[in-house]
C-alpha cells in the first residue's frame, strides 16, 4: 500500500508538528508514506469565497502531485472534504475522479482503512475534542447532534486507545468554532465571539488541551487562548495518537 501525504498549505507553514506526527504515526503503523514535493493547496480558500472558477491551476497541480497513489491521507478534514466534493479537471477527468475516491482524512483512514484496534500512545491529560464541522458533518467522522441516529465517533474511538487520557464532556458537543476560512476576517466580530464561546466550553469543563482533526479550527481557537494568556493549549489529534 502506498500512501501520499497531503499536508495543507497552512499546516506546512505554521503547524509542521501536526504533519510530522501524521507521517510518523502512519509509518509506525507500517504504511509506506510519500510526500509529493510539488503540493500546495486544495483551493478551498478561493472556492469558499466564491472563486471556485479560479481553482483550475490548483486542481491541476493537485492531480499532478497525487495521482497514482493507493490512498491520499491528510490531517485536515476540511481540505479533504473540499477535494472530495470539488476536485475536477477537464484535462484529466478520470484522475480527478480517482483521487476524490482515494483521499482520506487521517482518523477515517485509521479507522476505516487500516482498521486500527490499538495504539501505543500515552497522553496523561484532560482533553476536549473539537468536532470540526467539515470533518463531522461533511465527512461524517462522528454522529451529528441534530440527527436522530446512533452515536459514533472515529476520533473518539482512536483517542480512547490512548493510555491515561481523560476526555472531557462539552456542553455543546458539536458547535462550530467560527473559523470558516475568510469568514474569520470578513465577519471578524461573530467569528471571534464564536471562537470565544467554544473555547469557554472547553475551559469550563476543565480541558488542558483542545484537540481535533482540523488544524484550522485549532489555529483559530489557539489565537483566542493565547490572547487570553490561557494555560490550555491546542494540539492536533495526530500528535496525541503519536505521543509516548
Amino acid at each position: 500500500m502506498e500512501v501520499a501525504l497531503f499536508v495543507p498549505c497552512y499546516v506546512d507553514q505554521f503547524y509542521p508538528g501536526a504533519a510530522r506526527a501524521t507521517l510518523e504515526l502512519l509509518e509506525k503503523l507500517g504504511v509506506k508514506v510519500s510526500y509529493p514535493e510539488g503540493q500546495t493547496c486544495c483551493g478551498q480558500p478561493m472556492a469558499n469565497s466564491g472563486y471556485e472558477h479560479l481553482t483550475g491551476g490548483c486542481n491541476e497541480n493537485f492531480i499532478k502531485c497525487f495521482q497514482g497513489y493507493d490512498y491520499i491521507v491528510s490531517p485536515s478534514g476540511s481540505c479533504v472534504l473540499h477535494v472530495k466534493d470539488h476536485l475536477h479537471s477537464d484535462k484529466a477527468p478520470e484522475a480527478s475522479n480517482e483521487i476524490r475516491h482515494r483521499v482520506f482524512e487521517l482518523t477515517e483512514f485509521l479507522t476505516d482503512i487500516l482498521k486500527v484496534k490499538q495504539l501505543d500512545a500515552r497522553f496523561p491529560h484532560r482533553v476536549g475534542v473539537h468536532q470540526s464541522c467539515h470533518g463531522q458533518r461533511g465527512l461524517m467522522l462522528s454522529q451529528m447532534s441534530e440527527l436522530t441516529a446512533s452515536p459514533f465517533s472515529k476520533p473518539g474511538m482512536l483517542l480512547n486507545m490512548v493510555r491515561d487520557i481523560e476526555l472531557v464532556e462539552l456542553d455543546r458537543k458539536d458547535e462550530c468554532c467560527g473559523f470558516g476560512g475568510t469568514f474569520c476576517v470578513a465577519e471578524e466580530a461573530v467569528s471571534v465571539k464564536m471562537g470565544k464561546d467554544r473555547v469557554a466550553d472547553h475551559l469550563r469543563n476543565g480541558a488542558e488541551f483542545i484537540t481535533g482533526a482540523d488544524m484550522s479550527c485549532l489555529m483559530h481557537m489557539e489565537g483566542i487562548l493565547r490572547r487570553n494568556k490561557s494555560a490550555t493549549k491546542v494540539i492536533h489529534i495526530a500528535e496525541i495518537l503519536n505521543s509516548k
Binding site: V11, Y15, P16, C184, A186, E188, M219, E222, G223
Partner: peptide, 19 residues
C-alpha cells in the same frame, strides 16, 4: 482583523517541507 481578537500563530523555525 484577525489580530483584533486573536493572536497570530507562532511561526515555526522550519516548514514541514523543509523538515
Amino acid at each position: 482583523p484577525w489580530y483584533k481578537g486573536r493572536e497570530m500563530p507562532e511561526p515555526p523555525k522550519q516548514s514541514f517541507r523543509e523538515w
